[in-house]
Amino acid sequence: MSKIDIQNLDLFYGPFQALINVNLAIEEKMITALIGPSGCGKSTLLRCLNRMNDLIDGVKITGKVLIDGENIYENGTDLVMLRKKVGMVFQRPNPFPLSIFDNIAYGPRTHGNMNQAELEDIVEKSLRHVELWDILKDKLDYSALNLSLEQQQRLCIARLVAVTPDVMLMDEPCSALDPVATSKIEELMAELKKHYTILIVTHNMQQAARVSDRTGFMLLGKLMEYGETRQVFTTPKEIKTEEYITGRYG
């Protein structure tokens, strides 16, 4: 069974249909990339998986999204549980204006009663996970906003790791970063893949080709093609996919 199974998903922003009958199966502990020109609906699709689109007025969604076999659009789905399980990393690093420690402890603190020792343990583990511990272990009281953008993005991933999700959704996580920082985050993603199912939205095709196992190509709200990354980039089945990845439009 696939980790995530999207079935006949339609999404409307008022009268505008942003996703048209999307069907997609995402495998566990793999990186799946969604590519396509801006406005094709790839971020919208990503935000369907932790129901962040619920925050926007006038959104209507039909179809099913099964995660571990359960439809998250079923009435009575616990959004808190869902979002703990399906975490998200945003386009711009968005640490809270708190200390590094408090940023990572925020999730565990609000989710349960943890004592200080347990929290310290979680913070250390999470920071090690994103390879920030050695750099930051003496600066845990510093404001997270003083970190470089790359470190902020790593911190945001660590903040997510601290609530122990299954799935990580990454919405153009490198678009605010320079090439060096980008390649470091990509290395990190390859590492994270061992523990998490990762979905990444990117308009950087090289990035998709470098990091992902599966690639989906979207255009105007439709999933045009989906398959092994190597296959999609070398022998695309759809002419539109080929035109996009060879830079005919985008």
Partner: peptide
């Protein structure tokens, strides 16, 4: 209070009220 703070908190599985209480109100 920036929208990104709210989204970051909600995406961590923190409830709306807790988000208001711990992120929005202090800021």
């Amino acid at each position: 209070v920036p929208r990104s703070f709210r989204e970051a908190s909600l995406a961590l599985g923190v409830s709306k009220w807790q988000t208001i209480r711990y992120v929005v109100l202090p800021n």
